[in-house]
Design a protein around this nucleic acid. Structure first.
Lengths: 149, 149
DNA sequence: CTACCACCCTATTGAATGGGTAGGGTGATG
DNA sequence: CATCACCCTACCCATTCAATAGGGTGGTAG
């Protein structure tokens, strides 16, 4: 299950992608627009900045901007920063591998094999979906709707 | 992330699959063999029984047995019982749909589309992997190992 | 140069969840 | 009727989650 933190983080990053090239956005604007508690969002954006996904500018006229083009920031990155590894159990995680205490033989573990598949499927989706992709997908469906009307 | 509860539950169910047709197994045996805290496993198996995946017999010679053939119990079922819905956010859950409070328009939600994909991928794997499948997979890889040696 | 603005940081809080334990009840064998 | 093994209720502790408080810091503008 995705935490509220990660959900808010993703929504904020999508917001910032939609404002790409239009200068910095205020935390307050993002919070209002996406209905996120402001102080909470404050902490989330700071964390994303400290991991290099955002740049910020202080003072009047300041705010947050994407540190890279929206096509080069993936959902997977954001989720890993805010919620930790994608893998359902640590013994199949690439980014944070840890052996199972209670497991005798990893190779023979029937559970591990399935969880391996789950991890791979998650990574295949989330690491290959950029912010730009997410926006385009819904933009397209909106266009389709417009044509229909 | 899979909880310990679900992990233990899956391991216990795998154990019971391996003992299919050999009469009931004791909680204590499963707990020892899989290194699961006994009282905790006690509660887990009870829950799985109450959801119809296990049958039990009291008294001497009693214990737990699968309520259905291992080929007809899936990992997805077990995880849903012990950890709740597979979906990363409630607004894409089939079994426990709930609308996002902070979401204006579900159809236009860029996040929802990705999470939909994630949910589908998870379900595709977990609802199509039975206990029997899990056992066979590792049994095969063991055989391959034996041939190599 | 000073007022203001908006990000930055630390600490706290309250509720929920996760993981597990205690202790006895119940009903079937034998 | 004793024993065995599941059944049930209640409780506990630590951690995480979600959010808030309150002030610090550094730019900008006039």
């Amino acid at each position: 299950m995705l935490s509220s933190k990660a959900k808010y983080g993703l929504k904020a990053m999508i917001y910032l992608s939609r404002h790409e090239g239009r200068g910095p956005s205020l935390i307050a604007d993002v919070a209002d627009s996406e209905r996120i508690p402001k102080k909470f969002l404050d902490a989330i954006l700071l964390e994303l900045k400290n991991h290099g996904l955002l740049s910020s500018k202080k003072g009047k006229g300041g705010g947050y901007v994407l540190a890279r083009p929206s096509s080069r920031i993936t959902a997977g990155e954001i989720i890993r920063i805010l919620d930790g590894p994608l893998a359902p159990i640590p013994c199949v995680s690439r980014s944070a591998y840890r052996r199972c205490e209670d497991c005798q033989d990893e190779e023979a573990c029937a559970l591990r094999a399935v969880m391996q598949d789950v991890r791979d499927a998650l990574a295949a989706i989330l690491d290959n979906t950029s912010l730009a992709d997410m926006i385009n997908r819904t933009a397209t469906s909106e266009t389709v709707l417009n044509y229909d009307i």
